[in-house]
C-alpha cells in the first residue's frame, strides 16, 4: 500500500468552528424525534383498535370463519372477479376507441365521442343500471326476440357497467395520449408509419405511463363498484352474503366476509399495479 501514501492528496479545508489538525468531523443526521413519537402513538392506537375488534364478541369472528370459504361466497367472489375483468377490458376497449375518435381530425367522430362521454358521465350508474334493467318496458321486442329473454340480469350488468366505464376510460386514455410529446408523432409520420401503427406502436405504449395509475384506480373502483349489481339480483360477492344474512340475520359477520375478500383482492391488484408501472417505465430510467 506504499503506492497510496505517495499520492499527494490536496489538504481538505476544515469547516469553521474547530482546530486544524483534528480529525475530519463526522456527519450526524438530524434526530427525527417527533417522527418516532408519532410512530409509537399510531402503533398504540392500532393495537388498541385491533384488541377491541378481536375481543368484541359482537363481531362474531367464528361466524366469519365459517362462511369465508363456503361455496356460495366463493361463487359470488368468482362472479365479482370476472365481471370486473370483463367490464374493464370491454370498457377500456370502447374507451380507447372513443379517445381516438375525440382526437381524430374527423368532426363527426369528435362530436360522437364528446356526446357519449357527456351522456354517460352525467347520470348515476345506479340509474343507468335500472334503466337497462327496465328497457323491456320501452322496447318489448328487439329484432323479433322478447327483450326479457334477450337481456338476463347478468347481461344487463355487463352492458350497464361497461358503457359507464367506457366514458371514464376514454378520458383516461385521452389524457395519456395527450401526454406523449408531439415530436414523437411527427417522427413517426416522417418515417411513413400509418395511423394505426403510429397509435399502437409509438403513441399508446408511451401513453401507458400516464394511463396506468388512473386505470389502476378505476380497476379497484370497478371491483367494488360491481357490488351495485346486487340491486338487480345478480349474485356477486355482496349479493351472496346478503342472501345468507337475510336468512340467518348474522349481518355484521357476513359483511365482514365480503369486506375481507374485497380487501384481499384490492391488495393483490395494488401490488400488480406496481409491476405494470415498472414495465411501462422501461427506457425512461437510467442516466445519460
Amino acid at each position: 500500500m506504499s503506492a497510496q501514501t505517495e499520492i499527494h492528496a490536496p489538504s481538505l479545508p476544515f469547516p469553521p468552528g474547530g482546530n486544524a489538525g483534528e480529525e475530519t468531523p463526522r456527519i450526524v443526521p438530524v434526530r427525527r424525534t417527533g417522527q418516532w413519537a408519532a410512530a409509537v402513538v399510531v402503533l398504540l392506537l392500532l393495537a388498541g383498535a385491533l384488541v377491541s375488534v378481536v375481543r368484541n364478541d359482537a363481531f362474531q369472528w367464528g361466524v366469519v370463519g365459517e362462511y369465508l370459504t363456503t361455496d356460495a361466497v366463493l361463487r359470488g367472489l368468482g362472479l365479482t372477479l370476472w365481471l370486473t375483468a370483463l367490464v374493464m377490458v370491454l370498457g377500456f376497449a370502447l374507451g380507447t376507441l372513443l379517445a381516438v375518435f375525440r382526437l381524430s381530425g374527423n368532426r363527426v367522430l369528435q362530436a360522437v365521442s364528446w356526446g357519449y362521454i357527456w351522456l354517460f358521465r352525467s347520470t348515476p350508474i345506479l340509474v343507468q343500471l335500472l334503466f337497462w334493467f327496465n328497457i323491456g318496458a320501452l322496447y318489448p321486442q328487439i329484432l323479433g326476440v322478447d327483450t326479457v329473454n334477450l337481456l338476463s340480469p347478468i347481461t344487463v350488468a355487463v352492458i350497464g357497467l361497461t358503457l359507464h366505464e367506457a366514458a371514464y376510460a376514454a378520458e383516461v386514455v385521452r389524457g395519456g395520449i395527450l401526454s406523449v410529446e408531439r415530436g414523437q408523432l411527427e417522427a413517426a409520420q416522417s418515417l411513413g408509419l400509418g395511423p394505426w401503427r403510429r397509435l399502437r406502436r409509438i403513441v399508446l405504449p408511451q401513453a401507458m405511463r400516464s394511463i396506468v395509475p388512473p386505470a389502476g384506480n378505476m380497476l379497484i373502483g370497478t371491483l367494488k363498484g360491481t357490488s351495485i349489481v346486487s340491486i338487480i339480483a345478480v349474485q356477486d360477492l355482496l349479493y351472496s352474503v346478503q342472501l345468507v344474512y337475510h336468512r340467518t340475520y348474522e349481518v355484521i359477520p357476513l359483511l365482514l366476509v365480503a369486506t375481507l375478500w374485497y380487501v384481499a383482492v384490492t391488495s393483490l391488484l395494488s401490488i400488480g399495479q406496481y409491476y405494470v408501472e415498472r414495465h411501462y417505465a422501461r427506457g425512461t430510467a437510467g442516466t445519460r
Binding site: 410529446e181 415530436g183 414523437q184 411527427e186 417522427a187 413517426a188 409520420q189 416522417s190 418515417l191 411513413g192 408509419l193 400509418g194 395511423p195 409509438i202 405504449p205 408511451q206 411501462y280 422501461r282 427506457g283 425512461t284
Partner: peptide, 24 residues
Amino acid sequence: EREVLRQRTRIGFVFQNFNLFPHL
C-alpha cells in the same frame, strides 16, 4: 394520407431534438 406516407419514406428527416422513440 396513405399516399403522402409513401412519399415520406423517400425523404429522411432529422430533428433538432432527435425524437427517438424512448420505449424502443
